[in-house]
Write a protein that binds this DNA or RNA. Structure first.
Lengths: 339, 339
DNA sequence: CGAAAATCTGGAACCGATTCCACACCGGGC
DNA sequence: GCCCGGTGTGGAATCGGTTCCAGATTTTCG
């Protein structure tokens, strides 16, 4: 109810001067500025960001599209994004994109495009070229996180390399019977993360000259998922490998829990390695490759901010590959009968 | 760049008619409407919600304030809110409120108030009367989730009752040496959830005439937190209780993991009960009290929507107490030497 | 000392919609 | 034949700011 005009009247200045005084842009004499500020404080004035956005064309709001909220990686990324964004004075509007294409189209057509957001950060979602084109044609920077996408800046780890590194660690310890418990290729997840990690796994095996047999199980990407499958797998001594390379730490933890329940000693009878460095990895002594989603989120925001500041030019497309850190803990060791 | 005026010109009508045709409000002849719609589609027109908000005073956007994103309860609630909101055609703008009062004030003054949101949902955050007053004076509905707050509608479980129920279950099995591992009173969390659960716990003990000794440990509200403390606690056979009532499922799971590591049989040597029905509860066979945060989130949105639709009247303040469901699994049984 | 530059302020246009009001037209009831 | 109510449309005001421009005043400096 209190508009800029009221403040101006109260301070005895014009709207334009009041605007300048409050936004801090342009020339305003100090006493005038103070008068305006006092008036604004007195009637509890706050700008209407709608009105401001309308004329400036900027919303100071970033849209974030994400497939899950409730998984470690995504929640962590979101936290990183949120802190960085709020720090930069930006709002964060959240859209969860399910696999339903209809709902997906809706989010795009109905929400993202309406000049509500200045930029978009897509997490773990492979935007279609048409979607990217739509956003770009509106001059909105887009940054992807979780995998490489053509036509926009992205930030991610190298999934093939990560899986390979993890597998090589097991091989170097002397393991020959290694299995990979990774995500189902059909599970809702873009970027073929699952497929890539499987590729990296097999690459390492091939390089070491280990012949591949029954080396892969598809599991839900969660602790419970890893647990279920591992219970089955590990209870058959003939099937049981000496080491498991899990598609992510959650699966790895499920495997460890299952192994313990079956009376298997980790790492003596079974080595387990994951990827992520989940909050719980420390507690379970899990050897893993650390990726810091929280920092990735923060960096994604920085990329967006840079594009936003150099607006006009669509800024060079960057493809940032986040380095992984090997975290040695207690879940891997040499296999039982290693020579 | 394409404004309503362009659509109007292209369709050969006035701005007002174009607006009516596209929004579907008011009289428009069918052929005219079709012409306008074709024109809009042709140039890829989308309304500017800023402009619309400016005149209607509605943003179709709800602000959600939340202290954590990556904890089960909060992530779950958030998912529930998001789906329901998007379904109702509303955006969700996310603000994480840390305990830092300065940052908190900033979020309020700088973000929430700026006419960017039509309503606010506060999760697990005890809004101060001044904050509530501020929001209410702007005519914005507020709904709280996670505990009762004066002056606004809220939705929550009865924490005292929950803890009492859980404890009574253990008592009814014959346990006498029961401990509560709950949240630290100083940990960042409003609503005194921790204190209330402790109260419920002791209430049940008192009612059963069990004298209280060393019956409580403060732990971080997480799996790792429960684990750490339980490792200490359970390794001393003289200290060790026959049952543990955990402040939440995450703590309970940490306790179970610790117990297993120490070679204790759950439930034979140690019964454990939690509160929540966490995703992992099933896997660990945890007996617990189910609260469905996802549904709570959905219901919170419904409350908000109701207030929004009957706008003008500040709608009666409701205090919804969400019922809990007892979920019996395998982590509780009679104590070892029960008569 | 005078011209140029810097500082300060107000008026008015503008962003892009919604909506009120006036007007025109048509059919029906008396 | 007249009046009334329901349709259909355009003009103009409005929401609440930002910003361009012009004019006034002061400062700087050759």
């Amino acid at each position: 109810m209190s508009a800029l005009a009221d403040v101006a009247r109260m301070a005895g200045v014009s709207k334009s001067t009041a605007s300048r005084a409050l936004s801090g842009a342009g020339y305003v004499a100090l006493p005038t500025r103070e008068r305006v500020e006092r008036a604004a404080a007195a009637i509890g004035y706050v700008v209407s960001s709608n009105a401001a956005s309308l004329v400036t064309g900027q919303t100071r709001n970033v849209g974030v599209v994400i497939p899950f909220i409730n998984r470690w990686f995504f929640a962590e990324v979101l936290e990183g994004i949120e802190s960085t964004l709020i720090h930069a004075g930006y709002d964060l509007t959240l859209y969860r994109l399910s696999s339903d294409p209809e709902q997906r189209r809706r989010v795009f057509d109905y929400f993202l495009v309406r000049k509500r957001v200045d930029a978009v950060i897509a997490i773990g979602i492979e935007l279609a070229p048409s979607e990217i084109g739509l956003l770009r044609s509106l001059g909105k920077p887009i940054v992807g996180l979780g995998g490489p996408i053509d036509g926009m800046s992205t930030l991610s780890i190298d999934d093939v390399e990560a899986a390979r590194l993890a597998t090589e660690h097991l091989i170097s310890l002397g393991h020959r019977r290694i299995m990979h418990l990774g995500g189902d290729q059909f599970e809702q997840m873009d970027f073929r993360v699952h497929a890539q990690r499987l590729t990296g796994f097999r690459l390492a095996l091939d390089e070491a000259g280990i012949e591949r047999g029954d080396d892969f199980r598809a599991v839900p990407f969660s602790i419970a998922g890893g647990y279920e499958v591992a219970r089955q797998l590990l209870s058959d001594p003939r099937l049981r490998p000496t080491a498991i390379m899990a598609g992510c730490d959650e699966i790895a933890i499920g495997v460890i829990v299952a192994a313990r329940e079956l009376g298997l000693d980790v790492p003596r009878q079974l080595s387990v390695i994951g990827i992520d460095d989940h909050d719980l990895a420390e507690m379970f002594g899990l050897t893993t490759l650390r990726q810091e989603p929280c920092r990735q989120g923060a960096r994604a925001v920085e990329l967006v901010m840079r594009e936003l500041s150099t607006s006009g030019e669509p800024a060079a497309i960057e493809r940032v590959v986040v380095p992984l850190v090997f975290v040695a803990r207690r879940s891997t060791t040499a296999p039982p009968h290693a020579g």
